[in-house]
Amino acid sequence: MQIFITFTGPLRQAGPNAVDVPEGTTLADVCRRLADESAGEVRRHLLTVDGDIEPSLLVAVNGAGVPPEERSCRRLVDGDELLLMPPIAGG
């Protein structure tokens, strides 16, 4: 199945914009895959040093935010639009 991805903030120019993943893939699985396939800048925004999903990373699926405690169990479906938003605080 295909998952569409949009990066924002410090990762605005990161990619890919879509990934093909097997049925049953969770949101956390996609984040880990993106981190594994990316350079350090992307990886450090997605994962903690312990390999967990960075809790301050904002994640939304189809426009609805997904809190940290649900990311490991949230299964994606074909066509889901994933928004990955590192924290920003420019004032």
Binding site: T8, G9, R12, P86, P87, I88
Partner: peptide
């Protein structure tokens, strides 16, 4: 804001707050 992005939210009593989004100061 950051670079080309702007974000805005309001916290009202009884609703989700900024700490729901950012449980702790982000390390990066």
């Amino acid at each position: 804001m950051y670079d080309a992005e702007a974000r805005l939210m309001s916290v009202v009593p009884g609703g989700p707050c900024l700490a729901c989004l950012y449980p702790a100061p982000p390390p990066h």
